[in-house]
Design a protein around this nucleic acid. Structure first.
Length: 464
RNA sequence: GUCCCUAUCGUCUAGCCUGGCCCAGGACACCGGCCUUUCACGCCGGCGACGGGGGUUCGAAUCCCCCUGGGGACGCCA
């Protein structure tokens, strides 16, 4: 048991996306590895945009990935009393002040600064005003005017910014509600975080938050900033690049093991190893091996990992996972061939559960969907005798299993003077509707005598 | 624009701190071959990178500087 305390603090304004999932994962892994505590906190200070659906979606996605938390979820919306008292404290100590500038005035100042070629910052108009009129105002934090704020980032090393670059940030809005940069500090401090590990888009926030810790007399935690995830065009990952929601990948037929493995390897490495179970990650993960630069999200590699984990499942596990996807195809599994045997025959051919379900389709249709081109080639009057003989063979076979069936089939082909491929392809198309798919006699066995005969009859019908 | 971060194959990365073992290793993708009744899997092989320029050094992917590229931040959002 170490005293490490880390957290994941999403704002419930949408689904858990790929980037958020990775920071959550890194925090989780670190906590597990160090036997520390992983806290979940919901940052819902923006009441306008926060929704319960988003909270549920985030919780569901974390659960799917296997990221359990030790404390929480805590909701910032329930902690306003604490925040208010801290604002009062800063005001009383002269470390914060009321600002009466209107949004319009600020907007004008920002524009002027942009024109000037300098960073738009609040100019401190109200910082030293002596009157305190009873008018709408926000509360601003007095950022140190001189010196620099620096910290040693656990991933990036020393980061330092001149305080002159910073401005007096708003810690409470006109309606009195506290803002993000303020509540984050209070929560991270009050919840005893020893390390704040978040996306590197927060680096700028970190240097603004450190003076607040100091003003409030809190110990400053350690920080680590994880690089961003980019799309294939090196732009920040967004919907334009495809699915960004973690749960969208679940619907696409991805396994959580694959997602976790992919996410962790995007920005972290352990020598030449590529495949990691959660248990191995907990053992091997460390911040030292996290890269410092942004990475491009690569769906191809995710797909490869997914096919790897599909192959690793037992047929029974896979059957359970695939069943809902088959039902999505409006097919009924009940009454059809045994699903575990079906997925086993398809297992090494599918990269996703969706592909697996699609591959299983012909098993669960009364008559397969015949591919016109393949039929035109393999189910023709030239195959009339073949199919008739096959019908007789299959109906009279004593042992309806792959090996003896294949032997009998080979003997028949020899008798007819046909090569194996000449006979196998027509049979395959008759059984599955097209070329491609599992081992022919394996699938024949799985279908069983009744369905096989049905399909041969159906093929014979098509010929005539 | 200003500030912060960052820079090895198309992509994820190893190597960099502690220069020589690196004319740079692995993985995905791609290409070719083998296996095979099909499609896949698998196996074997191939293509492919130290962003540029200056230093330092006997020697630099590794250390220093500049340039350039990329990302982020600049909100009464989080």
């Amino acid at each position: 048991m170490s005293d490490l305390r880390v957290r994941f603090a999403p704002s419930p304004t949408g689904y858990l996306h790929i980037g958020g999932a990775r920071t959550a994962l890194f925090n989780y892994l670190l906590a597990k590895k160090e036997q520390g505590i992983f806290v979940l906190r919901i940052e819902d200070t923006d009441l306008e945009r926060s929704t319960q659906e988003s909270v549920d979606a985030i919780l569901q996605a974390m659960d799917w990935l296997g990221l359990s938390y030790d404390e929480g979820p805590f909701y910032q919306s329930e902690r306003s009393k604490l925040y208010m008292s801290k604002i009062d404290q800063l005001l009383a100590e002269g470390k914060a002040y009321r600002c009466y500038c209107t949004p319009e005035e600020l907007e004008a100042k920002r524009e002027a600064a942009q024109q000037n070629g300098t960073k738009p910052r609040y100019d401190g108009t109200c910082r030293n005003r002596s009157d305190q009129p009873d008018a709408p105002c926000v509360i601003r934090f007095k950022t140190p005017l001189e010196g620099a704020t620096s910290f040693v980032d656990r991933i990036k090393g020393t980061i330092s910014v001149d305080n002159a670059e910073l401005d007096d940030l708003i810690i409470a809005r006109t309606d009195g509600s506290p803002t993000y940069n303020f509540v984050v500090v209070i929560d991270d401090a009050e919840m005893g975080m020893t390390l704040v590990l978040r996306g590197d888009d927060h680096i700028n926030n970190t240097v603004r938050q450190i003076p607040i810790y100091q003003a409030l007399g809190y110990p400053v935690p350690e920080f680590g900033h994880v690089p961003m995830i980019l799309g294939s065009d090196k732009k920040r990952l967004s919907k334009r690049h495809g699915a960004t929601s973690v749960m969208a990948y679940q619907e696409l037929g991805f396994l959580p093991e694959a997602m976790v493995n992919y996410l962790v390897r995007l920005g972290w490495s352990f020598g030449d190893e590529e495949i990691f179970s959660m248990a191995e990650l907990i053992e091997k993960f460390s911040l030292e091996n996290v890269g410092r630069s942004a990475g491009v999200f690569n769906p191809e590699k995710l797909l490869w990992l997914n096919s790897h984990y599909i192959k690793e499942k037992t047929p029974e596990q896979l059957a359970e996972l695939t069943a809902p996807f088959i039902e999505n195809l409006s097919l009924s599994i009940a009454g059809g061939p045994d699903l575990a045997r079906v997925v086993k025959s398809l297992q090494e051919r599918a990269k996703t559960l969706v592909e697996l379900a699609e591959g299983a389709e012909f098993f669960y249709r009364a008559i397969p969907d015949y591919n016109p081109d393949d039929c035109a080639k393999f189910i023709t009057s030239a195959q009339l005798e073949l199919f008739s003989r096959l019908r007789a063979l299959f109906s009279s076979a004593d042992d309806f299993s792959a090996v003896p069936l294949k032997e009998a089939f080979s003997a028949l082909l020899e008798e007819l003077g046909l090569g194996f491929g000449k006979g196998a392809q027509p049979l395959r198309v008759a059984m599955t509707g097209s070329r491609g798919g599992p081992d022919l006699f394996e699938l024949v066995e799985i279908l069983g005598r009744e369905r096989v005969l049905q399909r041969i009859d159906s093929a014979l019908e098509r010929i005539s």
